[in-house]
Design a binder for these strands. Structure first.
Lengths: 218, 218
DNA sequence: CTCGGATTGTGACTTTGTCACTGTGATTGC
DNA sequence: GCAATCACAGTGACAAAGTCACAATCCGAG
């Protein structure tokens, strides 16, 4: 059994395993585009190493991150659009060097037809993504930016409670403008919740930040 | 062949047709809840008559419509959540009296395994919905409310170019506040684009409204 | 006709987004 | 080392959107 299989433990029947075992692996360097808005692709991709960021971009350059595809997950959107004959409404970009299994459409269809565990895996991913994006719609529509920012800081801080990214990058994550993030971070800093330096954010008062993140809507 | 089949012309192989033909039909009156946020369901539903509106609600009462399930389409979210073991992130409500085919999970799985046309139908719906919701994220994040409102008015006007709904209902559609809609409509009226009366909007200058709807982002 | 609820209007305010800048730290090439 | 350059961050002024509180209508039921 290949290493890859340990990443997809739920795909456990012979046909599903066969499909995974015979899939070719590809690699891509960090910061390369996996798919463009409006394009299409002919394979089902399973990430075995690294992270892919999926986001939409507006004409004026603003962006918002929709979700991330992690190790052991699949890059649904490509195949979805292929099967549904849609153009991509989003863009995919590697955040790290990645490796992925390439499952050709014929094998993908075979898996769906003959491997119930493969089918379950695919539907699970789909459901998860749809829920993620629906939740995002609510978040964007209803939550104040301080709440969304606080949440994001907590989730993406490393084990030392800091983040290495620019205000612009945070603005892209949350689909807002750089100035908005700068102002909000400054406010947090004045409240003593964190320390700012060029390209870095050091979280100090996790309790308080957590409280802001969990402010209920009215 | 039942009438239902004419609504699902792409499901054209024997097994797929069999599944549809033996499905029981249910009906629901207008304005009833099909599923709640946080609940789950055990059947795959195909709408044969009427319209179901899918939306999320914030704690403060604001709502936003995610998409509508029309005749000949499927109520993906229920099954998705069932298969992915997620709770619903949204609520479904009938907008009209509806009739739907109830396909039990066992038949749903059989269709996926044995009917390629059924499988294609399911994936098509999924892809379409995911794209719809992703597009919505961009719309909500990046487009001004006048543009979104103009678009909505054009799409939902009847053949006489009018709409029968309240400002509050429009606010729910677009995920914003009633006052915002009232003010924007008033502005449109002052510009001579439409006429307002209680619960009604009569569009006058379609060309101009269309121009606003297609304002590019900067 | 009157009452009450639903619908719409409005002013004052806060938050968010936009624009046009300025300041500042880091890096690179000489 | 030092200047030039560039990415990053700060800021003030304004526009757009959302919130809040309340007033003004309209309309149907009784």
């Amino acid at each position: 059994m290949k290493v890859a299989n340990t990443l997809f433990p739920t795909i456990n029947d012979p046909i599903g395993q066969d499909i995974i075992n015979k899939a070719k692996s590809v690699s891509l360097p960090a910061n390369s585009t996996v798919f463009y808005q409006g394009a299409s692709c002919e394979n089902y991709l399973l990430i075995t190493k690294g992270i892919v960021k999926v986001f939409t971009r507006a004409i004026n350059g603003r962006e918002i991150v929709l979700y991330r595809v992690l190790e052991g997950q699949s890059c649904t959107l490509t195949t979805t659009c292929l099967l549904a004959n849609n153009d991509y409404p989003a863009e995919g970009e590697t955040e790290t060097d990645i490796e992925a299994l390439v499952i050709p459409l014929s094998d993908f269809n075979r898996g769906l037809a003959e491997s119930s565990s493969f089918r379950a895996f695919v539907f699970n991913t789909y459901g998860k993504r749809l829920c993620d994006v629906i939740t995002l719609v609510g978040d964007v529509s209803f939550n104040r930016i301080d709440i969304r920012l606080a949440k994001h800081l907590l989730i993406h801080a490393n084990q030392h409670n800091n983040l290495s990214l620019t205000h612009q990058a945070l603005a892209f994550e949350l689909g807002t403008a750089r100035e908005v993030i700068s102002r909000q971070l400054k406010t947090f800093e004045k409240q003593g919740l964190l320390c700012l330096s060029r390209g870095k954010i050091q979280l100090n008062n996790l309790t308080e930040i957590n409280e802001i993140a969990n402010t209920p809507l009215i």
